[in-house]
Computed example of a mutant assay.
Amino acid sequence: MTSFAARPGSPGSRIVGLGSFQPDTVVSNHDLAKIMDTSDEWIRERVGIVNRRVAKPEELLVDMAVEAGAKAIADAGLAPTDIEAVLVATCTMPSQIPNAAAQVAHRIGVLAAPAFDLNAACAGFCYALATGSDLVRAGSARYVLVIGAEKLTDWVNPTDRSTAIIFADGAGAAVVGPSEEAAIGPVSWGSAGDLSGMIAVEDRDSFIFQEGQSVFRWATTQIAPIAIDAVERAGIELSDVDVFVPHQANLRIIEAIAKRLKAKGARDDLKIARDIVDSGNTSSASIPLALDHLRQAGEIASGDVALLVGFGAGLSYAGQVVRCP
């Protein structure tokens, strides 16, 4: 039997660069209180958000993805021509064709690379990171640009206080490259399609809808075990984790999951990403945004062990342990 040639892969993979982008326009709780029945106190109490970033009509999702992706490539010390695949996790493109990834690759200067979008909503970045890691380890690409980008305000009713107070815009990115040792752990992921109606956009003429209380109960009870499973798959202990970077859905959800992790062995000094407070919920962009902001603030260092976990519409969820670049 004739055997096929195979491109050699890498023993492991790692994040070698990070980048992020947020629009300049800041919308505060007080701004929202002027156009709907809400208040700063009401919003802080329920979701923990103080400010969120909102893109202008002319600022496109692809524009934000390009900015974040280019920063991640530069941070990795690479040129665009070093990138061999581009993945964009998003659920808010204004149309399904063409995809975001091919446009992003072209504008950054990544030439003729495979480029595709991935929609797992708020778990999208973790799904895309796992896919990028597997591409590197299998030898399908040496360096992969992974971006989470969302313009959620295109899909939110601006006067609906159940969604307009939460969702925001932005992009975050990571470059995944080869490593002699695994620095991106095995992914723990799955879905609960029977609950898909809890977060949905009914059709192309509709706004995003979510059953807030149902989502809250699901996330606060079901996500901690996924995070713990990701740690176990990586062959480490919860006490080895330095920083917890969950999807920035709601500060109360974040705190509830972190409390469960500490009850199971996470350290008391575990750093917890709370980017939600000033960035809002940016779906697939929230984890890379939060990770990059923690690094910019000097709250994490290269080599720190970070536990990432995304969850949202689908319902989809995913988590993995990574070493910070």
Results as ranks from 00 to 15, higher is better:
residue 53 R to A: 13
residue 115 A to W: 11
residue 275 D to W: 06
residue 75 D to S: 14
residue 131 T to V: 15
residue 217 R to I: 07
residue 259 K to Q: 15
residue 232 E to A: 13
residue 23 P to Q: 01
residue 287 I to V: 13
residue 119 N to L: 08
residue 296 Q to H: 07
residue 150 E to G: 05
residue 153 T to P: 09
residue 24 D to S: 13
residue 243 V to W: 13
residue 149 A to M: 05
residue 50 V to W: 05
residue 129 L to S: 09
residue 37 D to S: 02
residue 164 A to W: 10
residue 91 C to M: 12
residue 41 E to S: 01
residue 170 G to L: 04
residue 70 A to K: 14
residue 170 G to N: 05
residue 163 T to R: 11
residue 104 V to E: 01
residue 118 L to F: 10
residue 44 R to F: 00
residue 53 R to M: 09
residue 217 R to D: 14
residue 33 A to I: 05
residue 317 Y to V: 03
residue 214 S to W: 06
residue 272 I to K: 07
residue 151 K to F: 07
residue 259 K to I: 08
residue 316 S to T: 14
residue 312 G to C: 06
residue 50 V to G: 07
residue 98 P to H: 12
residue 231 V to E: 02
residue 111 L to S: 15
residue 283 S to F: 00
residue 180 E to H: 10
residue 180 E to V: 12
residue 158 P to F: 15
residue 16 V to K: 05
residue 109 G to T: 04
residue 165 I to N: 11
residue 269 D to H: 12
residue 154 D to M: 12
residue 12 G to H: 09
residue 84 E to Q: 15
residue 317 Y to I: 03
residue 311 F to E: 07
residue 303 G to T: 03
residue 319 G to D: 00
residue 85 A to F: 05
residue 175 V to K: 02
residue 94 P to E: 11
residue 34 K to D: 11
residue 110 V to P: 10
residue 98 P to V: 02
residue 291 L to E: 00
residue 286 S to E: 00
residue 29 N to I: 00
residue 148 G to I: 05
residue 208 I to T: 04
residue 131 T to D: 13
residue 284 S to A: 14
residue 44 R to M: 03
residue 96 Q to R: 05
residue 14 R to L: 05
residue 9 G to Q: 10
residue 87 L to Q: 05
residue 140 S to F: 07
residue 258 A to W: 06
residue 56 K to A: 14
